[in-house]
Design a protein around this nucleic acid. Structure first.
Lengths: 316, 316
DNA sequence: CTGAAAGCGCTTACAG
DNA sequence: CTGAAAGCGCTTACAG
């Protein structure tokens, strides 16, 4: 009953005589023996653990990605180590390196570090997949196509008969707003018969409320808020003024916050399946763990969640 | 330049000649040497990692607890390994044991396993702290006092002059509803001059909407919904019927969902600081890691978030 | 101040 | 089928 034998029965190697295996098992439960995973990891050269580093664990987006990664990793017998850089671009690099030292691979979500740091660190820590960042074209990445998302929403509205669409812009200079402008421009180019306007607004419920005048005065039959709060603000003001939704105007948001489906009318919006993003990140990582070397890119397009706040344009 | 020396400079032991330390450092960066944390862990007998196991990583409550633990642990130089039992009481025990084998301690959130399993597993995996479960009185635990929370809300309403309070009950037989009933009864006992009624309702926005008749007919000047959705449903119906909030009736919810502060009027509700719960769990764990042996209990009472949907009772 | 050696707790090729 | 031995990559008492 050497330790080699014990190791063999613990790992269920067939080459152990049944009766002695049985005896070993009995002693194991009797002593409450627990093999040390740390020692196993050192001996085997792998931890069966992956790291997930995010800029803000309090952000629902990253929570969902983490959830998706964890589910997929667990299925494959891996555990997840989390780390939160708390938006510190400076500490992020050291954090990632530390996480990588304890794990077999890492998923780096929305890294805040500079491109030069990212380029430098990526080779040090592979296998690695980068989530939600445009940067290193040669890295394995999974991204969200926000521009494609807003285009999809426009096309949905167009298919409903709308020809005058208004977008309530978000914070100027924000990444999200830039993607929005791009997606809108794409649709405008594809559909010269459709008028797509934009008006400055913001990202809060109050901004949406305040955009009522501009929206109603625009002549648009469909309004897309920068996000759900904006759309909800407009929705509230529209109700107060008797501007009926969706009879007189269709209103849509973006993000699918939990409350959106409880609004009256329930808010049409766009959702990104961040759990799926996490799952895709895991899959990409796993193919690297199995030896694939190609960089690849997986892109997720937000999908339209069609509820009651949008409808066919009314024959006017 | 033996490995012992390298180890000493990596760990910044003072007993190394400056020039040789410098030379070692140079070689380290040149070679891109990364000490293996796994080997360190084995040698030192600790991983500087704690496990957090939850029944559902998709649940915002557990996400917040995780966030709180992670922040506190990071400050202390610890990393967090997450694990999600996906509500499986059967797999939970093996999961916890596996997590414990890879870490120095574990925080067990809302364990679903049977009391007997919990009793059996706790001694095997200590240091451990149990979050959000009444069970083993002798274990180190941190819990949320929901009964105390609803009492606090009632007292708040009473201080505003309300003498007729109505509670819209949640799902019968649920743990949460039992705590509510208990808290309500406590206040009723303390304040014989106050009428505290309960009426069956539910936990959805539609249930809250449907409770309008019962609420308005009850004669209550303040209504507490089982949760925010219920309160919001009632709020919407009240607005439709011209029952003014908070002039005619005060309405309060429970949970402080993200949308609550955006409602019109902004919804008074109760919040549990789950990040703080996580932080407290970490603190309790750390004192065990440092050698404390006493079981202790930390209880968090939800706090009133006073917004615009409640106000002083109107002179009738 | 520095190095040789033992030890942390496993796994596994290599003999027997 | 089973065991002695080497090895995974560190740390640290013990000598020098």
């Amino acid at each position: 009953m050497s330790r080699a034998t014990v190791s063999r029965v613990v790992n269920e190697r067939p080459s152990v005589q049944p009766e002695i295996a049985e005896r070993v098992r009995a002693v194991i439960v009797e002593l409450g023996y627990n093999p040390s995973r740390v020692a196993q990891s050192l001996s085997l050269g792998k931890t069966q653990t992956v790291g997930v580093v995010v800029p803000d664990l309090g952000n629902p987006t990253f929570q969902s990605i983490l959830h998706g990664v964890n589910q997929a990793a667990a299925t494959a017998g891996y555990r997840v180590l989390v780390a939160d850089s708390e938006e510190s671009a400076d500490e992020e690099r050291a954090l990632v390196e530390d996480v990588r030292r304890r794990t077999d691979a890492v998923i780096l979500c929305s890294p805040r570090m500079r491109p030069s740091d990212l380029d430098a660190v990526l080779p040090q820590i592979k296998p690695v997949v980068v989530v939600n960042r445009d940067q290193p074209a040669h890295a394995t990445r999974v991204v969200v196509d926000y521009a494609g998302g807003i285009s999809a929403m426009c096309r949905h509205l167009i298919s409903l008969g709308h020809r005058r669409i208004l977008h309530l812009d978000g914070p100027v200079g924000s990444n999200a707003q830039a993607a929005r402008a791009l997606g809108l421009a794409t649709v405008a180019f594809e559909h010269p018969e459709v008028s797509i306007q934009r008006v400055p607004c913001g990202s809060t419920i109050d901004a949406g409320y305040a955009a009522y005048e501009a929206a109603r005065g625009s002549g648009a039959t469909a309004v897309i808020g920068f996000n759900d709060l904006v759309a909800l603000g407009l929705l509230g003001h529209a109700r107060e003024e008797g501007w009926r939704v969706p009879e007189d105007v269709s209103i849509a948001g973006f993000d699918d916050i939990p409350f959106a489906r409880f609004a009256t009318p329930a808010l049409t919006t766009m959702r990104v399946a961040f759990e799926s993003v996490g799952e895709a990140a895991w899959n990409a990582l796993q193919s690297q763990l199995r030896g694939a070397v190609d960089a690849d890119l997986r892109s997720f397009t937000p999908v339209v969640v069609d509820r009651d706040s949008t409808g066919p344009v009314r024959a006017g």
